[in-house]
Write a protein that binds this DNA or RNA. Structure first.
Lengths: 142, 142
DNA sequence: ACGCTAATAAGAATTTTTTGCATTAGTAAA
DNA sequence: TTTACTAATGCAAAAAATTCTTATTAGCGT
């Protein structure tokens, strides 16, 4: 039995075809890849999987609730998803070519914690997006 | 002539009633207030201003392009807006009561700049949202 | 005041996401 | 295994959020 099935069960989710397929797509994604529900839906169609778009949204929402995936709102409306990584990380997005790099910085996190403490907040989540232009190799083709 | 008119002209925008009214609403907002297009639309209706929702969106988008307002995507989909402050700042949001506090921390910014530099990015924008529970005084009424 | 042009209202259209419901498919237990 | 229970799915339709179209109106320079 494949490992993704274990993941799903661990999350308390029945192992169904749509869930497995969606999980696999996310798993195969490279670093910095972020898919929208629509993206995943189209990939499923390409693989001749008969999964409805509504199901994609449902499954992604369930995955998010289970902590399997993280949802992001980059500039421009719709949500994108990625498999939750072991290490929480932030994103820097090129506004020209759309490339996303991920990074994690303990100093940054520590300072954030301190600020939250000073303001009397108990942090449950955090998102830092840096936007800019990636100097070299930016083909400017968003 | 009121000061908001100056602001609009400075931004290269004609002084029209919808723009003035929307600007005034944003101006009157307290620290930490963030309005959605819908919020502003409803406020306009309450003040018997005959402005269409589409116009609200258009004006806010223009204001954003002109740098007059900043758009934020807090958790939960839709955009909210606030008048751009002199000092760029970050947000910490209570997930229980929805309260938003703003803060600015030079150390944080400096570290972000450094990270961007290391990754070869020239930062044009940044958004940090911390989410958590505000300890005391949280009435839990989102 | 006049006229040019940009801005507007209104609603239709799009885009993104959610929901209701009849049907199907996992899963646990016999 | 087959059975049967229940959760999950697909589809269509609705919501929600935002943008576009077009005829009309209103700023603003002259």
């Amino acid at each position: 039995m494949a490992l993704e099935n274990q993941e799903l069960r661990k999350a308390g989710l029945k192992v169904t075809l749509p869930r497995v397929k969606i999980y696999q797509i996310l798993e195969k994604a490279g670093e910095g890849d972020h898919f929208s529900a629509e993206d995943i839906y189209k990939l499923l169609l390409e693989h001749n999987e008969d999964v409805g778009l509504a199901t994609v949204y449902r499954v992604l929402t369930q995955f998010e609730a289970a902590g399997l995936v993280s949802r992001h709102h980059f500039e421009g409306g719709h949500s994108v998803f990625e498999l939750t990584q072991d290490e929480q990380h932030d994103h820097i997005v090129c506004v020209k070519c759309g490339k996303v790099r991920e990074f994690s910085d303990p100093a940054l996190k520590k300072r954030q914690d301190q600020i939250a403490k000073e303001l009397g907040f108990k942090i449950t989540d955090r998102t830092l997006y840096l936007y800019g232009e990636c100097a070299d190799g930016c083909k400017n083709t968003k």
